[in-house]
């Protein structure tokens, strides 16, 4: 910088300096924002947009693991369209996501409201609630795998000792049992995230609003319905978007507990994509399965995005 300042007068003295386009770009305030954004932009393109684009491109090729493929158009999608296993995984994924998300929200909200009350040992209880979220997913999945084992399940064992059942429950061997079992594991793992985030939202609600409502003679339900709920809506929208995204793309729990079995009853689109792409080596088809997840995910994002734009959602007021 010092050089420029020193040299600048010399230049003007010797010859009229013509400002190049590059120099103008460098100094222009309107472009300054662009320059500051550039590193982040490069990062996003390199690590997010490029892999996503590559994935979509791969889904239009017959690429195999370790060798590039040729463009085959929508052939992969055509095959999947008639593939009953693929549709089964779509069904499984939707069921898994919807049931788990709704229950996670209900339990999470309940826990958050409870933890927001004056409780003895509040800090410790809040920390305990987080435990399922802290334990690495693979470890908790292995624990659940043992809990649901057809031969060694502690649940079956206890029920048998209590003479409530005569034979072990086939948790992971029967298609519907297996579905409910993995959904249960997912709920157990996902509740803390919802609960703690909603709790954070609850604490931003000003106590004076509640005080005013109490003075007006409101019932607890009315306070929840007309104060807590409207003020919590933006947080709920964000939390549920994330919750739905995480659940929809779940992989570890399923892979450790069932590998998609029995008879593909718990295969989610993510695990199915992995099986086809990496284990069987059909990268193109695997990429097509993961690309098929995008529309569903986009829907989930758009709902919350448009929701957050609306004043009604933001402030609990009417739009009009």
């Amino acid at each position: 910088m010092a050089d420029i300042i020193l040299k600048a007068p010399c230049n003007t003295a010797s010859a009229p300096h013509r400002v190049t386009a590059w120099e103008r770009l460098k100094a222009d305030r309107n472009w300054l924002g662009f320059w500051f954004m550039l590193p982040a932009g490069v990062f996003l393109i390199l690590f997010l947009a490029y892999p996503l684009g590559l994935g979509i491109w791969l889904s239009f090729t017959d690429a195999r693991l370790g060798r590039p493929g040729d463009f085959v158009g929508i052939e992969n999608y055509q095959f999947l369209w008639d593939d009953s296993t693929f549709w089964l995984t779509v069904f499984n994924t939707l069921l898994y996501t919807s049931v788990a998300s709704v229950i996670k929200f209900a339990i999470g909200l309940y826990l958050a409201l409870l933890l927001n009350e004056r409780l003895p040992f509040k800090a410790i209880i809040r920390a305990v609630v987080l435990i399922p979220f802290i334990v690495p997913t693979v470890l908790s999945a292995i624990a659940f795998w043992w809990l649901f084992d057809p031969q060694f399940s502690i649940i079956s064992w206890s029920l048998r000792k209590l003479h409530l059942i005569s034979a072990n429950i086939d948790f992971l061997g029967d298609p519907w049992n297996a579905r409910w079992s993995v959904i249960f594991a997912n709920i157990w793992r996902g509740v803390p995230f919802v609960a703690i985030t909603l709790l954070a939202g609850l604490q931003t609600v000003s106590p004076s609003l509640y005080e005013a409502a109490i003075i007006d003679g409101s019932t607890p339900w009315q306070r929840f319905r007309y104060i807590t709920y409207p003020l919590l809506t933006p947080i709920i929208a964000v939390v549920m978007t994330f919750s739905v995204l995480f659940t929809f793309t779940d992989f570890q729990l399923i892979w450790v507990m069932t590998r998609g079995g029995p008879v593909n009853a718990t295969h989610l689109m993510a695990t199915f994509s992995y099986q086809r792409a990496i284990m069987s080596g059909y990268l193109g088809e695997g990429a097509a399965i993961s690309t098929a997840m995008i529309p569903f995910l986009l829907c989930a994002i758009l709902v919350s995005w448009f929701g957050l734009q609306r004043r009604k959602w933001q402030q609990g007021e009417s739009d009009d």
Binding site: P150, Q151, A167, D170, G173, A178, R259
Partner: peptide
């Protein structure tokens, strides 16, 4: 077979 083999790894 013993029940539960459909989930065996």
């Amino acid at each position: 077979m013993i029940p539960g083999t459909a989930s065996w790894n």
